[in-house]
């Protein structure tokens, strides 16, 4: 049997696991609730009088900052705590298959939560005549960003058996990635670091890249950035899981 079908078996178990516990319902309810509050109350969706979803997507990075680590924290820490890591690692599953399967389950779950925001899209189409291409691009950007956060969180989760630690550390790392392109941060770095470093840091910014995608500009470089970040996060997860098996 190929590694791929084992990946699917792992994905299905992991995804099913979310729905066996209140984790899924609690997460989805709060995700949608917060989305609503940000979009309508803080973002002023109606007051703006424009048929687009800018106020909706604008807050995604900040919402993900807290909610994505909440999904990713259990990915590996939970296996370690339950002792099922040993079980999983002695099943005939290649390591990459387990890492990718579990990551995909979390990503699909985030995707389900994101897809459940469809009433916002229906509303804006009912109220006006938005550019649905831009909206589709923004959804894609949002999903890619969630994937980026998840891969970072997956790696952090593999390093500990404590979910609280996994949550806090992932949150801080995600915040760093988010803020990398923020002017105050760049100003601070440019005071002492060479320009090349400043550019490198700026290029890691989720915020800048997400903003350009959510405006409907799908730059190949942005896609490559997110996909390679996910790949790097998963590779790092594999290394950490392998190195910390005896811990």
């Amino acid at each position: 049997m190929s590694g791929l079908s084992r990946t699917v078996a792992i994905l299905r178990r992991e995804l099913g696991g979310y729905f066996l516990t209140p984790v899924a319902s609690v997460f989805i309810v709060f995700f949608l609730l917060l989305m609503g509050v940000f979009t309508f109350n803080i973002g002023g969706f109606f007051e703006r009088g424009q048929a687009d979803l800018r106020p909706f997507f604008e807050f995604h990075p900040w919402l993900y900052l807290f909610l994505i680590p909440a999904i990713s924290m259990r990915l590996w820490a939970e296996e370690r705590r339950q002792g099922t890591l040993e079980l999983l690692m002695t099943l005939p599953v290649p390591l990459w298959s387990a890492v990718v399967g579990k990551f995909l389950a979390a990503w699909v779950f985030a995707g389900i939560a994101l897809a459940l925001t469809f009433p916002v899209w229906i509303s804006v189409n009912y109220l006006g005549d938005p550019d649905n291409g831009t909206i589709a691009a923004a959804y894609l950007g949002s999903l890619l960003m969630a994937g980026g956060f998840l891969s970072v969180g997956s790696c952090v989760s593999a390093a500990t058996r404590n979910q609280v630690i996994a949550f806090v550390v992932s949150l801080v790392l995600c915040l760093v990635l988010l803020l990398a392109g923020f002017n105050p941060v760049l100003d601070y770095i440019s005071g002492w670091a060479p320009q090349a470093v400043v550019d490198a840091v700026a290029s890691f910014s989720f915020l800048t890249r997400f903003e350009s995608i959510s405006k409907g500009v799908i730059d190949v470089r942005d896609l490559v950035f997110f996909i390679s970040l996910i790949a790097a996060g998963l590779l790092a997860t594999m290394l950490v899981v392998d190195a910390r098996k005896s811990a």
Binding site: M1, S5, R6, A9, I10, R12, R13, L91, P92, V93
Partner: peptide
Amino acid sequence: RFIAAVRG
């Protein structure tokens, strides 16, 4: 069922 699936 999961074990059976993973074991092919």
